[in-house]
Design a protein around this nucleic acid. Structure first.
Lengths: 199, 199
DNA sequence: GCAGTTACTAAGCGCTTGCTTAGGATGTGT
DNA sequence: ACACATCCTAAGCAAGCGCTTAGTAACTGC
């Protein structure tokens, strides 16, 4: 082997192109509505090339799902820790969460709506990441209630609602409309503070 | 013909059994992840029987989607008209919307997440019903703002958020958990009033 | 008791699916 | 110049797909 540095080989670039093509196809037609020939053709390769770079069609979904979930978990944790004030932190969490679900709606659609197509082992791993994401948001709401700056009858329900707002943006958001991700995120962050009864 | 009354023939019962089986299968594995053999077997019939009672697999999805959307539209319109006070009406809309999306989560999952598998003609018809549902909720929010009982910087965004809350319940709700549909609906209705800034 | 209707199935057709096999083209080190 | 590694493809296999065809069993009306 010549390069053990981090530089990108041709194979790595092709692998990434296949992943990109898979994201687009899975988002548009779903995992089961997409054929391996669709993905290979969109990446400009023969059907067999997919199996040179990846083990199976399911592995593509797993790789997309895992990196997508890890990205969101990192984002939520960083935003939650960005301020000692729960209201400021929550505003940032919802803002960033919503921006990601709008801007990367293609990826987040796959991440949130194609879980059932994962193998049992992969699904279990992904579910754990999802649990951490939910936990981070719930803990932030609870911290605000404890600190006396939030007021809500059921923090768990409020956290579920906040998650729903962000996740569902990935479903309805379209590129090229008159609503830009930053604007949606700003309005949603305000609504989030109302939901938790911030004062 | 002997019976032209409304009484249910054997064929009607079988047709309904096939629809039921299709709802369950589509909700669990998605339209493309479900085979016509799956549906027929779940209804206790041979694969060919499906085509005695329905034109195609896509027609099953269309029938499920249409009746599901019509049900929700009726529910939203009735709840919106149930009170002259926008706050009371909105509470009722969100409550009923959420109860339906929890209790009938199997159907609402198909209704909200399998649209892409519809034929172009059927999709156009369904989109129109969806538009009416969104319109009914947006108009209610705007009526509240006009009446001075709601306060929000962007009624359209608030309406989108309300819709998201309900729709997403269909994604995460599970039977047999400690959260019963009525409880979720009550908490969500309170949060809805906060979102629109009711006073 | 038999003609007609209703409700269904056995068998299978043509095609597509995920994936494999065997090999070829292009570049690289010496 | 030549051995070798890298990256990709042509061809195709077994299984599964949506859907059709041709027919049978069971009931109904007379």
């Amino acid at each position: 082997m010549v390069t053990d540095s981090a530089e990108q080989s041709r194979a790595d670039a092709t692998r990434a192109r296949l992943l990109d093509a898979a994201v687009t196809a899975f988002a548009e037609r779903g995992f089961h509505g997409t054929t391996t020939r669709d993905i290979a053709a969109a990446a400009g390769l023969s059907p067999a090339a997919l199996y040179v770079h990846h083990k199976s069609k399911e592995e593509l979904l797993y790789l997309i799902s895992r990196s997508g979930h890890e990205h969101v978990l990192r984002l939520v944790r960083e935003a939650a820790a960005s301020s000692a004030d729960p209201a400021t932190a929550l505003r940032r969490v919802v803002h960033d969460f919503v921006v990601t679900h709008a801007r990367d709606h293609t990826t987040t659609r796959v991440v949130n709506y194609e879980l059932a197509a994962l193998s049992p082992v992969h699904l279990a791993e992904i579910r754990e990441i999802r649990h951490h994401i939910e936990q981070a948001i719930r803990q932030l709401v609870e911290a605000g209630v404890t600190a006396g700056v939030f007021e809500t009858p059921d923090p768990r329900m409020a956290a579920a609602a906040l998650l729903s707002l962000g996740v569902d943006v990935g479903r309805w958001y379209r590129d090229g409309g008159d609503l830009v991700p930053e604007y949606i995120a700003a309005r949603y962050a305000e609504m989030a503070l109302r939901i938790v009864g911030a004062r």
